[in-house]
Design a protein around this nucleic acid. Structure first.
Length: 310
DNA sequence: CATGTTTCCTGACAGC
DNA sequence: TGCTGTCAGGAAACAT
């Protein structure tokens, strides 16, 4: 399942292969595509655009798009659970569950494949002359919904044809690879929720999912069920260091392939063989030899060593 | 606001 | 063999 290291690997792979290429056609699969932005808008924005930098923000792949006749925009790809973003030969057969195919000028294709359809595709950027009233229409719809609820909340991303605010896209979460120790501790200050649930909360921290939360907690010697507020300062330091370490090692090994994760070339990662607790229930702890246990926290299976983690 | 629960979706796998 | 049930989980939506 794609978390920060996997998304980083995919984004880097796509960047290296298709940056500078022009999109000559955009195809979308059945009408239940996993999209936030209307398919017609996606198609109009993508067709004719030149792909710029492709990078990662949190668990989202961000692709810069440039066009002569429109303001710069970005396509956002969230891989969800089983999403794959593949650079393929145009002649290669299409995998089942292919939801988007972008044909490139050189004959290759950028494909989005997602069996479970938890992934999301959307366009981020200002409205331009090329889009007419498409965005405005969706916005008034969102406004009506807001009115009906009698609140002044911002329309959700699902309501919008085009996301038009940087805050809406980036969210409030911090990047775990660059956050300071002080800011890291402050994220969890006073929170009664289990530390594992807090680590998974994207509004606090970007890009940490079930695998790396469990692995970081093991390296820090902290049980996943501990109340976040009760994790000591020293443990917090070990947690941040352990998290950065595990994320960096995973990026170096191309991510973890525990189900069907593959990179832009369809290659599996190798970090799964380095997992110390994740999906090792009943197997001996690599440090003390006692069996790894599994509990459910925040609706997610959480793996830990009852002896090494307090 | 903080936190907990449900929902979406398909493939893999266990058990009969 | 082929069916049924269970599980996996990111994050939006909903409930408390």
């Amino acid at each position: 399942m794609p978390e920060l290291p996997e998304v980083e690997t995919v984004a880097n792979g796509v960047n290296a292969r298709v940056r500078g290429e022009r999109i000559v056609a955009a195809w979308f699969g059945d009408k239940r595509e996993p999209m936030k932005t209307a398919p017609a808008v996606m198609e109009r924005v993508l067709t004719g655009a030149v792909i710029g930098r492709v990078h990662r923000v949190g668990k989202t792949v961000v692709m810069d798009l440039a066009r002569e006749d429109a303001p710069p925009r970005q396509m956002l790809v969230h891989l969800g659970m089983t999403g794959q973003l593949l650079v393929s030969d145009g002649e290669a057969p299409r995998a089942k569950h292919t939801h988007m195919v972008l044909s490139l000028a050189d004959g290759r294709e950028l494909r989005f494949v997602d069996p479970r359809r938890f992934g999301r595709l959307s366009i981020f950027g200002m409205e331009g002359p090329d889009l007419g009233r498409g965005g405005a229409k969706a916005k008034s719809k969102a406004k009506a919904k807001t009115k009906a609820r009698g609140s002044s909340r911002k329309p959700s991303q699902r309501d919008c044809a085009i996301l038009d605010s940087a805050a809406e896209f980036a969210g409030s979460g911090a990047e775990p690879l660059t956050i300071s120790m002080e800011a890291f501790r402050e994220l969890f200050h006073g929170r009664k929720t289990p530390i594992k649930a807090a680590l998974l909360n994207q509004k606090l921290l970007h890009g940490v999912g079930n695998i790396y939360a469990d692995e970081a907690l093991f390296r820090a010697g902290v049980r996943p069920g501990r109340q976040a507020a009760k994790v000591t300062r020293v443990e917090m330091e070990r947690l941040r260091v352990g998290l950065v370490e595990v994320l960096r090692q995973a990026i170096a090994l191309g991510g973890s392939s525990v189900s069907d994760y593959v990179d832009a070339d369809g290659m599996r990662g190798f970090f799964q063989v380095e997992h110390r607790v994740y999906q090792r229930t009943g197997e001996p702890c690599l440090v003390c030899g006692r069996p790894i246990r599994k509990v459910v926290i925040g609706g997610r299976s959480s793996h830990f060593c009852p002896h090494c983690q307090k």
